[in-house]
Design a protein around this nucleic acid. Structure first.
Ligand SMILES: [Mn+2]
Ligand SMILES: [Mn+2]
Ligand SMILES: [Zn+2]
Ligand SMILES: [Zn+2]
Lengths: 159, 159
DNA sequence: TGTCAAATGATAATGATTATCAAATTAAAA
DNA sequence: TTTTAATTTGATAATCATTATCATTTGACA
């Protein structure tokens, strides 16, 4: 955790940005919720618990900055808000998502899986890939397994 | 074209919706701009040319309805607006997109390409796929081919 | 300690989308 | 054809996420 923050600090400083207390508090929230997909508002609420003076604009600015530095990825699942997803350190590709239409859960796929597809796109479309977004919509294993009557909703659902 | 509209009409009627003149005008605009990725506002402007009395709210409602019927897919490329993309008739999967970071052009990939990946996701994650969204971000063939000095921007760029 | 750019927080502004509601249209019933 | 009831529409207000503004604070450094 501390090492992770330290590396982000160095990354900021390498572009002559400072790791202010507000920025650090925001990064800590992101690290502590690595598996979630928080909106700016979500992050704001969580940071406030530890750093009540922080302003919403600062959270937006910090998330914007972290996106620029590729510390986080900004993603949109189609419910009118942007969500921010911490990148795996050293991962050269953004991970994929499984969005459940039943319970709203968002699960992650860290494996690449797209190697062959990207090779085809690069050569056949002559398109030089820098990044990608892959999201599957469907029924998650929890909703799938459970027989229809009275299966509870996941707590990980959006909105 | 007329046949295509006729089939959409039937699809609407099968759910007891009417193909009103406003809806037909909207569908025509979508068909005439099949390769583009229009925002609601874009559609509104274009429909107004043929049907000036139409209201913006009606366009939004029509696009919403067509999304429900899976005539169009709603997609978000990360510039604060939703875009509406006519589905290929009979295609069981939404097509993929290539977004150029240089000129903003959005190209389409109609081929599936994801067959193997989906098989893996279905079995290994026990996730029942209903739909997907795949977008590559990178440098398109036009910007790639052209040597850096003075290559013009595509007309297909967003915003 | 004094200086200056960077960063912050409060708040106003913007812009896309949605909600509201009275009027118009439509299809079916009488 | 008239009546009726439900659907659809257009104008406009409301909402909500995000961005812009600006006065104040902070931090690094001379
Ligand atoms: Mn994720
Ligand atoms: Mn498309
Ligand atoms: Zn589920
Ligand atoms: Zn390009």
């Amino acid at each position: 955790m501390e090492q992770r923050i330290d590396r982000i600090k160095k990354q900021l400083q390498s572009q002559s940005y400072k790791l202010t207390p507000q920025r650090e508090a925001t990064v800590r929230v992101l690290l502590e919720h690595e598996d979630d997909h928080l909106s700016a508002e979500d992050v704001y609420m969580l940071v406030k618990e530890k750093y009540p003076e922080i302003g919403l604009a600062t959270v937006y600015r910090t998330l914007e900055l972290l996106t620029e530095l590729k510390v986080v990825d900004k993603i949109n699942f189609g419910d009118g808000v942007s969500r921010y997803d911490l990148r795996q350190e050293g991962a050269d590709h953004f991970h994929h998502h499984l969005v459940c239409l039943e319970c709203g859960a968002v699960d992650e796929i860290q494996e690449d899986l797209l190697g062959d597809v990207e090779k085809i796109v690069e050569t056949r479309w002559n398109f030089h890939i820098k990044d990608h977004r892959l999201t599957f919509h469907g029924i998650c294993h929890r909703c799938h397994d459970t027989s229809s009557p009275g299966h509870e909703k996941s707590e990980v659902h959006q909105k």
